[in-house]
Design a protein around this nucleic acid. Structure first.
Length: 399
DNA sequence: AGGTATTCACATGAAACTATTCTCTGAGTTAGG
DNA sequence: TAACTCAGAGAATAGTTTCATGTGAATACCTGT
């Protein structure tokens, strides 16, 4: 029997750590959401009129990432839908995540996504935006119903394309005869509403609910619940859950991250042939999650972007700090070498700002007095990640 | 010495442009009756 | 005459360019002592 066959045989025989890995995926819906009872009953109160075919107040949900906003709202809406079906009430919940690239991150795409949720497809481009709106209106008004429209990560949407869409959406009700639409916005950004058009702001947040971060104990409990159904008994070393939650609590109570970490730790442990998920695996997971995030962020950028990054990687071994101008020069020669046209300094400046946002570089704007004002940059990555990234870039850019 | 004014090397903003992808429209072409 | 093809016009979008304006402090340039 060949080696690879052997491997698969052993793989099967080895009893897996995981009882049900899905429990640790972000798409998993637990039966009940713990420690969010207060917020959920408040939201339920606000939304309940929908079941009597009245339009509930628009609702706005604030809270940092991983505080159970999306989960809670989905859970509420699901149970409302269940009851609606049982009692023959026309209620249609729609959930859209506005951050998804190429899905719902522009006005056109958002509306077309909504249309899709009614079971109709529209072209992804080529039509004027009002056309799309018209189709949407018509679909909405086909039958008498209340629509619960959940816009997740709504702050990302307005950051990118402004608040006009929201204004349009809030005004839709005036034009509809049969249906009514209730907007539920979910935002990670606590001060999101402040730079919104006041008209939009007042009509969008008729009611709002804040989701506070979980504390360490709560995270621990949630994690324990999940891990009990995700892992087989006795496969998680004592202390792992505690450390994992402590880590998440430090990062403003982000449970999603903690769960992610636990899953990756499990995977690493499984692959390493260990009998238990140990704390060392957790540490390894932390590093892996971090570096995967950075690498995929970098690799998903346009070609010129990568070239700039590569230029930075070329100087960084020689100097700890460097400036925009130096990078631009190196980038220029790189471009010539690989026969690409050179971007303007303006653009490169923006790219550097984006790299800073992604956490790949560390840039600080300083003034060198008589010698100008510029970004003082240093590469803020671990050695391992740098080498890996550099290899990938080299390969892709064929340098 | 102390106080202004300059000046550098970019940063930051706004608007406009370009290439690509996709639709719709209507003229011209083709095939069938 | 109905069906098909195909170029042209128009949209949306991402990535840029162009033009214009802003900026913090090390230096240059005064000023009066």
């Amino acid at each position: 029997m060949s080696g690879i066959n052997n491997f698969f045989e052993n793989y099967l025989k080895q009893d897996s750590f995981f009882r049900d890995k899905n429990v640790l995926l972000s798409s998993y819906m637990p039966e009940n959401v713990i420690y969010r009872e207060e917020q959920m009953s408040e939201a339920a109160n606000i939304l309940a009129p929908a079941l009597r075919n009245e339009k509930p107040s628009n609702l706005f949900i604030y809270g940092k990432t991983g505080t159970g906003k999306t989960l809670s709202m989905k859970s509420i809406v699901n149970s409302m839908k269940e009851i609606a079906v049982k009692n023959n009430i026309a209620l249609k919940p729609i959930y859209v995540n506005c951050k998804l690239k190429r899905v719902a991150d522009t006005e056109y795409r958002l509306i077309s996504q909504l249309i899709k949720s009614f079971g109709r497809d529209v072209p992804s481009t080529g039509l004027p935006t009002d056309e799309i709106y018209n189709i949407f209106y018509k679909l909405l008004d086909q039958e008498k119903q209340v629509i619960l429209l959940i816009l997740d990560e709504i702050d990302q949407l307005t950051k990118k394309i402004g608040d006009e869409v929201l204004y349009n959406l809030t005004r839709i009700n005036a034009e509809l005869k049969n249906s009514q639409i209730c907007l539920i916005g979910i935002s990670n950004n606590l001060i999101f509403a402040e730079n919104l058009d006041p008209r939009v702001k007042s009509s969008l947040s008729e009611e709002d609910i804040i989701f506070p971060p979980y504390n360490a104990l709560q995270i621990q409990e949630i994690l324990r619940n999940r891990s009990n159904s995700a892992f087989n008994d006795g496969t998680v070393q004592t202390g792992v859950i505690e450390k994992c939650s402590a880590y998440a609590a430090r990062e403003h109570g982000d449970v999603r991250r903690a769960i992610d970490l636990l899953r990756v730790a499990g995977e690493i442990a499984e692959r390493s042939g260990s009998r238990q998920v140990e704390i060392t695996h957790l540490d390894a997971a932390e590093r892996k999650v971090e570096s995967d995030k950075l690498i995929s962020a970098a690799m998903n950028q346009p070609r010129q972007f990568k070239l700039v990054l590569f230029a930075i990687m070329l100087i960084s071994p020689q100097k700890r700090q460097f400036f925009t101008g130096e990078i631009y020069e190196i980038y220029g020669t790189l471009c010539k070498k690989s026969n690409l046209n050179i971007l303007t300094q303006r653009r490169v400046s923006d790219i550097l700002a984006e790299l800073d946002m992604l956490g790949i570089i560390n840039a600080k704007i300083i003034s060198k007095g008589r010698y100008g004002r510029t970004r003082e940059i240093n590469l803020s990555l671990e050695e391992g990640i740098i080498i890996k990234l550099k290899e990938m870039l080299e390969k892709e850019l064929q340098l």
